[in-house]
Simulated assay, not measured.
Amino acid sequence: MWRHIASNAVTFLILGLFLLGGIILWGRGQYDAPGPLSQAICLQVERGSNMRAVGDDLATQEAVSSAAIFRLGAEYEEKTRDLKAGSFLIQPEASMKEIVDTVTRGGASTCGTEVVYRIGVNRISTQVRELDPATSRFVERAEFTPGEDEVPEVYTQTKAKADTRFRIAMAEGVTSWQVAEALKAIDLLSGAIAAVPAEGSLAPDSYEVSEGDDRAEILTRMAAAQEQRLAEAWEARDPGLPVETPEELLILASIVEKETGVPEEREQVASVFVNRLNQGMRLQTDPTVIYGITNGQGVLGRGLRRSELRKETPFNTYVIDALPPTPIANPGRASLMAAAQPASEDYVFFVADGTGGHAFAETLEEHNANVARWRQIEAERGAEAAGNASTGGN
Rank of each mutant, 00 (worst) to 15 (best):
M1P: 12
M1L: 12
W2C: 05
N8Y: 06
L13S: 13
L15G: 11
L15D: 04
L17Y: 10
F18I: 15
L25I: 12
G27I: 01
R28I: 10
Q30I: 07
Q30G: 08
A33L: 02
G35W: 00
G35D: 02
S38C: 01
Q39R: 15
I41T: 02
Q44A: 05
E46H: 11
G48D: 13
A53S: 12
D56N: 05
A59F: 09
T60Q: 11
T60Y: 09
E77V: 05
E77Y: 05
T80W: 01
R81A: 12
A94L: 14
A94E: 03
R105E: 15
R105H: 15
G107P: 08
T110V: 09
C111S: 12
G112E: 07
T113L: 06
E114D: 11
R118V: 12
G120T: 09
N122P: 07
Q127M: 11
E130Y: 06
D132A: 13
D132S: 13
A134V: 13
F138V: 08
F138Q: 13
R141C: 14
A142C: 01
P146W: 04
E150Y: 09
V151F: 08
V151D: 05
P152V: 06
E153I: 10
V154A: 11
Q157D: 15
M170P: 07
W177C: 01
V179Q: 04
E181I: 05
I186Q: 08
L188W: 10
L188F: 10
L188H: 06
G191K: 00
A194G: 06
V196K: 07
P197I: 04
P197E: 10
E199N: 02
G200S: 04
P204Q: 01
V209E: 00
D214I: 08
R215C: 02
A216V: 00
I218S: 07
T220F: 05
R221W: 03
A224L: 12
A224K: 07
A225C: 10
A225G: 03
Q226G: 04
L230V: 15
A231T: 12
E232G: 11
E235Y: 08
L241T: 06
I251C: 00
I255R: 01
I255P: 00
G261A: 14
V262L: 15
N275Q: 12
R282W: 04
G292N: 03
N295M: 13
V299I: 14
L300G: 07
L300Y: 03
R302N: 12
R302L: 05
G303I: 02
L304R: 02
R306I: 13
S307K: 12
R310T: 07
V319I: 15
I328V: 08
A334G: 08
M337H: 11
A338Y: 05
A340D: 03
A343L: 11
S344E: 14
F349A: 06
F360S: 04
H367E: 10
N368S: 05
E380L: 14
R381T: 10
R381W: 11
A386W: 11
N388F: 14
T391S: 15
